[in-house]
Amino acid sequence: MAQVINYFSSAAIPVIIILIIAYGLKEKTKVFDNFLNGATEGIEIVFKMFPTLIGIFLAVGALRSSGLIDLIVNLITPLTNLLEIPSQIMPLALLRPISGSASMAVAVDIMQNYGVDTLTGMITSTIMGSTETTFYTIAIYTSVVGIKKTRGILAAALAADVAGMVASTIICRILSMSFS
């Protein structure tokens, strides 16, 4: 099972790239021009993310090197043990619904410090891939039509986030067990 998933995942990128380009050619679009336009947008994404990355890395770097993060992690460990989430991931879990670029920066920091392919790194990636910046999404979608009363939609959206995070943790745990 684990090997099948692994093989499928490795084949995914080449297959996706082939399909995208073939489909673009089939519809006679300007494949290369479109690629360049998209890549230019990519530069903008990284440029916009850069100041946040600096700011968050500064804060996380200070938290880490002062030893304060260890203290905090130790304090919240009983709670995270209850949810089966590794305590190193807790800062990400708390920040994820609030800010997209800040949570991405924290995710990068976690993967750099605890490894990309470790259990912690896998859970971090899965959480980033399976959840959204809930507060931001609700804010833009309600403000565009000028709606003030949101009937507790935040509760439903946050419940979905928590479910996604707990599910990410459990799935990665099961996968890493069957790999080893």
Partner: peptide, 14 residues
């Protein structure tokens, strides 16, 4: 990120 955005732009234009 530029690579993926470029590829996704191809999809967007189909």
């Amino acid at each position: 990120i530029c690579l993926w955005n470029g590829l996704m732009e191809i999809v967007k234009r189909t």
